[in-house]
Design a protein around this nucleic acid. Structure first.
Lengths: 194, 194
DNA sequence: GAGCATACCTACTCATGCGTAGGGTTACGC
DNA sequence: GCGTAACCCTACGCATGAGTAGGTATGCTC
């Protein structure tokens, strides 16, 4: 039933989806949907939650905390893109629909914050291993950028059924790691004339 | 009048915005809106178009094509940040709305092509200067990642009034350039055991 | 088999909001 | 002063779709 919701929401968008169509897709009647999952808004949040949780679990399960940073990042990215590739509908619901609708931005902010926390923790861990340290804000910014870039590529992937998730993960890793790798070595770029 | 549209659309979202409210915001009556700009859908496209064009011009104007690649990227990024920062309720919000709504995917494809053209063209130019060449898809992916990261940082910035835009742009440049810089040198990361 | 609960459906109410019809107002020509 | 034309308004028609009322079938208890 949530599956039906996710399918229809991703096909039509939150507003374009009618409860009739969702009920139809699930093979039951509308009052049943209301009986089990409440209003349209609640139904959407339920879908959002489930897809988000599944994704988090997929990533957390892949990126074991005792691995070296690049390996962790790679596995995390691969799990992420693998998930998006396999659940294009779910991704569309999560990040396209939820982002556009002011009603759901709160939910989404929480999820992203958790993602950023994970990534920042990864970088922090790698830095401490080398005896270096960086202000928390600095890490947060880098993590934000990486998460944003990854989300963006996930969108790219979701629009291209022929694209390979594995290959996309590798590309992302190139951008993320070669950038982050330099940063971890203490190399920074400076604005000209600054 | 388009200004009113942009304001209301970004405040309420595409569906949440009513033509009455837009007309009210513009200080005229609804039939006037229809007389000048047609249906709600056409109005939205017009807003999207204008904001997108403005942003493109801001970036293209800042990043002169005869500069070295890092300088171009830096100026482009700064212009991008400046624009998104100054038009917080403008382009990025509309863009988000458009992505969620299947109605606008066509229009969006065109805009995206132009965006990618600007960012990827920058990278492509740098590559050709070194006599190297990379598949168009490859460039598109990198461009996507960079734009996504930048948007994400713009969000980060918007939530923190005390943060410095210039400094944030520098951080973004660090991630983007040190990553892209390595890539331009032909250095690529490979998956372990691949 | 009467009473009752569960599970589900058809068919409705009602609010919302896009798009428009038709009426008023001002300015100008004659 | 009267026609008329440009301009803009109020006030409505109408479709859509969220949420619900009230009915029907099946099964379970005593």
């Amino acid at each position: 039933m949530l599956d039906a919701g996710v399918r229809v929401f991703s096909r039509r968008g939150y507003h374009g989806a009618s409860m009739d169509e969702i009920a139809d897709e699930a093979g039951i009647s509308k009052p049943m949907v209301y009986a089990y999952l409440g209003t349209k808004e609640e139904l959407f949040v339920a879908c959002l939650h489930r897809e988000g949780t599944r994704m988090m679990e997929a990533i957390a399960g892949a990126a074991a905390p005792d691995l070296p940073a690049d390996e962790r990042l790679w596995r995390g990215l691969r799990a992420f893109f693998g998930f998006v590739g396999a659940h294009r509908d779910g991704w569309s619901v999560l990040y396209r629909q939820a982002r556009a609708e002011p009603l759901f931005t709160g939910e989404l902010t929480v999820m992203r914050a958790r993602m950023v926390e994970v990534v920042a923790g990864m970088l922090d861990h790698a830095l401490r291993a080398e005896g270096r340290e960086v202000a928390e804000t600095e890490l947060e910014v880098v993590a934000y950028a990486l998460v944003g870039a990854t989300e963006s590529l996930a969108d790219w992937l979701a629009d291209r059924p022929e694209a390979d998730p594995e290959k996309t993960a590798t590309r992302m890793m190139n951008v993320a790691w070669l950038g982050a790798g330099q940063l971890l070595q203490g190399i920074t770029w400076r604005p000209p004339g600054g």
